[in-house]
Amino acid sequence: MGPLIPNGIIPEEWNSIIAIIIGIFFGFILESSGFSSSRKLAGVFYGYDFAVLKVFFTAALVSMIGVLYMDYLGYVDMTQLYVHPTYLWGAIIGGVVMGVGFVAGGFCPGTSLCAVAIGKIDAIVYVIGIMIGVFIFSELFELFEPLYNGYFYGNITLMDTFGVNPYWFVFIFSLIAIVAFLVSDFVRKRTKKIFY
């Protein structure tokens, strides 16, 4: 039956409208769970707040389990879902750049826009920084192009790479997640309480 839009159950024209509605809710939830505070976001690197880790890990797990159940019951055809293509070295270097920016600036690109929406000055500076980065990247694109388009591995998933059964993978992954949550709680209790 699903996915709904590629199979024509919801007309193609609704695509952007639904995206905007989901985007609004996503932003609202980010803001209401405190993710527009750079102190909370950076907390995961200093060990006093692990909300980011918990939220995104849980979100990934819930959606993974949900998609697998829906695929099993025949509501969603998993082969039709979009899998992000892998450009190995581009992803690694981009990830490092993004991580450094995350620690230094205290935002990830999505949450920075969220914080701009509630008027945080540091976030406004951060977004201007993103724009400058985008500009530099576009101007020097020819230099970066081999990295940007190279090392292409196709639309692969971890299950393809390791060749494991997706069900077992998800089970082990959720165990890892819960262990990670326990460890992060342990670390948080050990570190000095910070009020922000």
Partner: peptide, 10 residues
């Protein structure tokens, strides 16, 4: 609940 659901898949 998370472990139960994931285990159910297996």
């Amino acid at each position: 609940i998370l472990i139960l659901l994931a285990g159910g898949l297996v």
